[in-house]
Design a protein around this nucleic acid. Structure first.
Lengths: 186, 186
DNA sequence: ATGAATGTTCAGAAAGTTTTGAATGTTCAC
DNA sequence: GTGAACATTCAAAACTTTCTGAACATTCAT
């Protein structure tokens, strides 16, 4: 068991990143597998990855498929080797931007649409004081969704994982929007 | 059923925000309840909230307790009324900063600690090329966690929900850290 | 073609999460 | 003190997600 210190350290890191990934709404297995590949000496085969993470062959297969779908793990062919090997994408920006693009953006958009529907409904309702207040509050939620959308869009446009360019992009959140978000009960 | 347009619009918004909240790892019911209170004409009693959201009394009670624990819903007493009423916190910044503080920060810290443990283990292992590479990669994960910690800390220090001050705080992510994050396979 | 090595799929098992509703607790008017 | 009006708790049910493992598919060397 001379390799066991390496394995133990890798597992420790893999589980930590697994928790982060789970916290962000993905399966813990995705984070564990990515990290194990990231820390591996070289690209690993599915069986070896499964052994290191104590996952069944089925789980490994599904996990690798999903990681490839997210573009954060690549399949590599080794000359002379029959089986396939997998290696982790190591460019954090590539990974984060891709996930943000696919996941956050579409949700924010769908939410905005539903809030707009809600507001339209309220605008057709009798214009009581209560309903005018409702329209305004749905409007604040909408302003927040719009801001989130624009922050995400600008973040993606900034093409960096280090966040240092957030300054520029936040120019895009116009004062009107920004103001609306500070509201207290009307 | 003259109120039903209002109820329908509220439910539409509540479900949309419920999805956002679920996406961020909370129970959908929390988002639905907060939104329903936010859009309500006035503070609501538990029974009324349960009726509007079609939730059982038990679920309403647990949900309101949790929302209060997060500090995003307040209990209010109405003079002359026996039961308790609940109203939504309307200051988005207050809500977001509180949640970020309690939730994200502690996770990032615990993850950083585990990664440090992993690195310490690897440093004690035989100094092969593979192990030196492992130490370096765990180091990159750590740099990322540190940056996330500092971004979150600065975000909280900025005391605004509109993100416009992100510029200043990102000075805190020193170039060394920023550089390490752009790495490709070593 | 055959079979050994490997990857993939999917039905069912296991695990985890959320909700329900009946029992219990609390408060207040009388 | 009693009972009506609520709120809270918690065990069990319902639901959801994830994992397992056996069956199936594919690939390649011979």
């Amino acid at each position: 068991m001379s390799e066991s210190v390496e394995r133990e350290a890798e597992l420790l890191a893999a589980d930590a990143i697994g928790d982060v990934i789970e916290h962000w709404g993905f399966r813990k297995a995705l984070g564990r597998a990515w990290t194990m590949l990231y820390l591996a000496d070289d690209a690993l085969g599915a069986a070896e990855l499964g052994e290191r993470l104590a996952m069944s062959a089925g789980a490994v297969s599904m996990t690798l498929t999903e990681l490839q779908r997210w573009g954060v793990v690549r399949r590599v062919w080794k000359p002379g080797e029959r089986r396939e090997f997998y290696e982790a994408e190591t460019d954090f920006w590539k990974m984060i931007s891709r996930v943000v693009h696919d996941r956050e953006r579409s949700l924010v958009t769908s939410v905005r649409e539903r809030l707009e529907q809600s507001r339209a409904l309220l605008r057709k309702a009798p214009s009581t004081a209560a309903n005018r207040a409702r329209v305004e509050r749905v409007g604040r939620l909408l302003a927040f969704a719009s801001m989130a959308e624009s922050v995400i869009g600008s973040f993606l446009a900034s093409r960096r994982a280090d966040f240092s360019e957030f300054s520029n992009l936040l120019q895009l959140s116009r004062p009107s929007v920004v103001g609306a978000l500070r509201g207290r009960r009307g």
